[in-house]
């Protein structure tokens, strides 16, 4: 009877995983701690809009021209929506799950970015790195030089000045549409 039991035990072997003494084997597609690369981040706020629990937040100070990005791991639900929407691949979910921490501060990461000032009125309007990124994308798109120069000039202005700059181009179109009634 006992021998039979021992045989059974030997056949089954050890079920318990040796974690934490050896690393645990993770399933493919495991979503762990979001790894952030501030070099790649352009502070465009796509992730903060996508984040369902608002673990990712962004504060824009238009007076100082500073935008602060922050991620609080304590609120993260590891859904990878931030990774989906990031246009530069600055945030990716890694394989680290050992996040236990004694304080809230240790669970928070922050990054500070400068805002770009409008080249006409001087008001801060968008992240400087985001603007650089968009200009680089325009170069990559290979537009005709004149068109590209026009678009770049528009992009360097704030939305308000952009509207005013665009007025001479739009006015005849509107007049045409309304048969000169405007």
């Amino acid at each position: 009877m006992v021998l039979k039991l021992i045989r059974e035990v030997l056949k089954v072997g050890q079920a318990t995983l040796p974690y934490p003494f050896t690393p645990v084997e993770l399933a493919p597609g495991f979503r762990g701690k979001p790894e952030y690369d501030p070099q790649q981040c352009i502070a465009c706020a796509a992730c903060t809009i996508a984040c369902p629990p608002n673990a990712l937040t962004m504060h824009t100070d238009l007076e100082q021209g500073v935008r602060t990005w922050s991620l609080f791991y304590g609120r993260c639900i590891f859904c990878a929506r931030c990774e989906e929407v990031c246009p530069t691949g600055a945030i990716k979910l890694g394989h680290d799950f050992e996040l236990a921490s004694f304080s809230r501060e240790d669970l928070t990461i922050r990054a500070e970015f400068r805002l770009a000032a409008c080249n006409l009125c001087g008001a801060y309007f968008a992240s400087a790195k985001e603007l650089e990124h968009v200009l680089a994308l325009l170069d990559q798109a290979g537009l005709p030089p004149e068109d590209a120069a026009n678009r770049k000039a528009l992009l360097r202005a704030c939305p308000e000045c952009r509207r005013k700059m665009d007025l001479p181009r739009v006015k005849p179109l509107v007049q045409e549409a309304f048969n000169g009634r405007v």
Partner: peptide, 27 residues
């Protein structure tokens, strides 16, 4: 065991640029 997490802070550097994804492939 020891805690692994550390508070992180990054301040924008002057020469910091983001890289385009797959720049060799046409947009």
């Amino acid at each position: 065991l020891n805690q692994k997490m550390k508070a992180g802070y990054h301040s924008l550097q002057d020469d910091e640029r983001s890289q385009l994804l797959h720049p060799q492939v046409p947009l």
